[in-house]
Every structure is written in structure tokens, then in C-alpha cells.
């Protein structure tokens, strides 16, 4: 009897359950029946071996490491996102006065000023590194340095984000309504009647004065 003759209905039955058997999900009686069949059928036994091999190979595929450049790109994206972000219109009323300026705006501005002050004041107190390596320096592992660099990047991105938001808030709630707009009005009120209007009037008169001349020609 050839191998193909042997490959009958019992083979179909066994092959249909091969994967479930591989995962140990078959009832005991079915699992036993398959084991008996595999001992007597070369082709099904070969299929069984291959199925096991593929499952094992799948399980041995390594977990991949996400490259650090992906993280860096995400950091840049977050900073960019924060830079282009705008508050929804109408969330904070534009008619705010200095006396009732939102506490959140003041607090954010103070945090930024404080952070910048601390940062600037520390610039002059940075420890001078010795020329030769000391034991303390040798204790700092490359991993620790990498983590510290990463932390610095995140901190700057975060401070940058706060700074931008605070800047936008101060601009919209304080500078525009209390500085720019009043100055614009004052300039308009002062310059228009004293400069712009007389000049416009003079130009109009001069233009009108020439009209009869043109007609007379």
C-alpha cells in the first residue's frame, strides 16, 4: 500500500486537529487518537513535526528593540505640537483686567521665570571637571549618562512647552488687551486728529484747488 493510499479520511480528521493538538487544546480521547494515528502515518507525522517546528520558530523570534531615534523624533514632535497648539477660542475671556488675571496664567509665568532664574544662576556654579579621571567619575556608567541626557531632553521639551503656553497666555490675556490695544487707541487718538487728519485735509484742499486750473485749461 502506497503512502497516498494510506492518506485517507483519518488523515483529514487528524490534520484538522493538528494545531489544536499542538496547543494542547484537544480532549484527552481525541489527543490519544491522534497520537495513535501519527505513529502509523508517515505523512501526518511529517506534518506534525513541521507544525511543531514552525510554532517553535515563531516563539523564538526575538522581541525587537525600539531605536532611540524614534524616541527623539517623538520628543521633537511633542515640542512641535506644543508650539503650534492654541487655546480654544473663547475659553478665557479677552476682557480680563490686570487685577483679575487668571491665577493659572500668573502661576505658569512664575514657574517659567523661576525655572529660568535657577537655570541661569547655576550657569556660574557649574563644577569644573578635573583633567584626569577620578574614581568618582569612573563610577558613572554610560547607561547613567544616557539616562541623564534623555532626562535633560525631556525636561527642556517640557519647560519649552510650559514656556510657549505661558507666552501665549500672557500675550492674549495681558499684553494685547492691556498694552497693545490701548497703545493703538492712544496712538490713533493722538496722531489721527493732529497729524493724519490735517495732512488728509491739506491734500484734499490742494487736490480740489487744482481742479479749477485743469478746467480752465
Amino acid at each position: 500500500m502506497s503512502q497516498s493510499d494510506q492518506h485517507d479520511n483519518s488523515c483529514e480528521w487528524a490534520l484538522e486537529r493538528l494545531e489544536a493538538h499542538l496547543d494542547g487544546e484537544l480532549p484527552a480521547d481525541e489527543a490519544q487518537a491522534i497520537e495513535v494515528h501519527l505513529k502509523s502515518c508517515h505523512l501526518c507525522a511529517q506534518e506534525w513535526a513541521l507544525a511543531g517546528q514552525v510554532k517553535k520558530a515563531l516563539g523564538s523570534l526575538p522581541q525587537k528593540t525600539c531605536p532611540d531615534r524614534v524616541l527623539e523624533a517623538v520628543l521633537e514632535g511633542i515640542a512641535e505640537d506644543a508650539g503650534t497648539a492654541r487655546r480654544p477660542a473663547g475659553l478665557w475671556p479677552a476682557r480680563l483686567r490686570w487685577g483679575i488675571l487668571r491665577p493659572a496664567t500668573i502661576a505658569t509665568a512664575l514657574i517659567v521665570v523661576l525655572a529660568l532664574t535657577v537655570f541661569i544662576s547655576r550657569q556660574g556654579r557649574l563644577p569644573v571637571l578635573p583633567d584626569e579621571k577620578t574614581e568618582e567619575m569612573e563610577e558613572i556608567s554610560p547607561e547613567a549618562v544616557a539616562i541623564a541626557k534623555e532626562e535633560v531632553k525631556w525636561t527642556f521639551a517640557y519647560i519649552g512647552d510650559i514656556g510657549r503656553r505661558a507666552g501665549l497666555a500672557v500675550r492674549d490675556d495681558a499684553i494685547y488687551p492691556h498694552v497693545v490695544t490701548p497703545v493703538q487707541h492712544a496712538v490713533d487718538e493722538a496722531i489721527y486728529p493732529r497729524v493724519v487728519a490735517p495732512v488728509q485735509h491739506a491734500v484734499k484742499e490742494a487736490f480740489d484747488g487744482r481742479k479749477p486750473d485743469r478746467r480752465s485749461r
Binding site: 503512502q3 497516498s4 513535526a49 523564538s60 523570534l61
Partner: peptide, 25 residues
């Protein structure tokens, strides 16, 4: 449904362990 093993005749089915990972990916 899965094609029967008989369709493949007697071809060798045990894969080379060295390149299986690459081909599997």
C-alpha cells in the same frame, strides 16, 4: 480547508533550521 499532505507527494517538509527564521519573518 487545509490541503492534504498527499497533494504534496513525498516532498521533504522538514525545514532547514538555519534559514527558517528569516523565511518565517
Amino acid at each position: 480547508s487545509v490541503r492534504s499532505a498527499a497533494d504534496r507527494g513525498g516532498q521533504e517538509t522538514v525545514l532547514d533550521a538555519i534559514d527558517i527564521r528569516e523565511r518565517l519573518e
